[in-house]
């Protein structure tokens, strides 16, 4: 009996991802009909490159949302880490790319740690801590850059290669994203700390009583988020070959929307990496495809909003039906 219920529950869970996948297939089919250029190898590559930075960030945001938190500061973190790293390579063209990446990660880690400490040690609500840090970090970016941008000609070739280079024909960005996914999958599924993140999210009190270091886990997720945002900052700057003060302004909302599209609830505890990947993919697809099918630029934002709302709505309806059916069967 119990095992049957569990099987059904798992069925419902994977059904959600399947639903999202179906939605993606449906949307792509529709777009393909409008523009046959959509499903070509070249465009799929473009699409994946485009979605890769977003999909790195959603991994971090997934963990933050799992613990019932939120992080609004990542857009600013991307800007600061990108700006500082770009200024460093502009001043010392000899810096190897790997050091730039580490530098970006360190900057993000510091910001993430501050937010993590505020949230876990001082009980500041995540939305407030990250909102405050968002302002502070954005302000710092302007102060550090002195209003200047770092332009393509100031960036040495190896630095730009971080994002434009290829291994076996596959763009570095895609490879980095895949590696991060693999690590995150292992971390969330098979390590003790990974499971503790779920535990803290689904029932903080129970987690604490059962001896899980709740504060440490919460602090950790913000540190991971910060580090990933710092990494994304370097990738962003290398990809677009320019660092400016208002880089990625408001990008945090895209990330959150993609994660929620992937079926992660903002109330913590539930959400899977596979869903989040699909969410990021769908989001990347929309921004790639809407210009392709010649939608009036004035309609794009409205359509994006409607698609997100529809996906979320379908998600809820499907979940409700599944729960109802599960209940019915149990009564029999």
């Amino acid at each position: 009996m119990l095992s049957r219920m569990r099987r059904m529950y798992q069925g419902a869970e994977s059904f959600r991802e399947l639903g999202l996948l179906g939605f993606i297939v449906l949307v792509s089919a529709g777009i393909q009909l409008r523009n046959p250029m959509f499903l070509t190898a070249g465009n799929i590559n473009t699409l994946l490159v485009h979605a890769s930075i977003l999909s790195i960030l959603v991994v971090g945001m997934l963990m933050v949302l799992l613990t019932r938190g939120i992080d609004l500061s990542i857009g600013s973190t991307i800007a600061l880490s990108g700006m500082v790293c770009a200024m460093t390579v502009a001043a010392n063209p000899g810096v190897p790319p790997i050091l730039s990446l580490l530098q970006g990660i360190m900057i993000g880690l510091i910001i993430g740690t501050i937010i993590g400490l505020l949230v876990s040690r001082f009980n500041v609500l995540p939305i407030i801590a990250s909102l405050g840090m968002m302002n502070i970090v954005r302000g710092l970016t302007y102060v550090v850059s002195g209003g200047r941008w770092v332009s393509a000609y100031q960036m040495p070739r190896p630095f730009l290669q971080i994002a434009t280079g290829r291994i076996l024909g596959v763009n570095h960005l895609i490879i980095i994203a895949v590696v991060i996914y693999l690590i995150a999958y292992y971390f969330l599924t098979y390590t003790r700390t990974g499971r503790q993140i779920y535990a803290v999210g689904s029932n903080p009190d129970a987690a604490e009583i059962s001896g899980i270091p709740k504060k440490r886990v919460i602090c950790l997720v913000y540190m991971i988020m910060g580090a990933l945002a710092g990494l994304a900052g370097v990738l962003w700057v290398a990809r677009f070959a320019s660092a400016q003060g208002n880089t990625a302004m408001g990008y945090e909302l895209n990330v959150i929307a993609a994660v929620v599209l992937g079926g992660v609830s903002l109330t913590g505890g539930s959400g899977k990496l596979s869903g989040v990947i699909l969410g990021a993919l769908l989001f990347g697809m929309l921004s790639n495809a809407l210009p392709l099918i010649d939608v009036s630029p004035f309609w794009q934002q409205a359509i994006q909003g409607v698609v997100i709302l529809t996906a979320v709505w379908i998600n809820v309806v499907v979940k409700r039906r599944n729960e109802q059916q599960a209940l019915l069967r149990r009564e029999i």
Partner: peptide, 22 residues
């Protein structure tokens, strides 16, 4: 076509790519 990149790097890049594909 007249495309709008909103003066955002990522959007401008996506719009250009769409122009080249279409």
């Amino acid at each position: 076509r007249i495309a709008y990149g909103d003066d955002l790097r990522d959007k401008s890049v996506a719009e250009t790519e769409a122009l080249l594909r279409s």
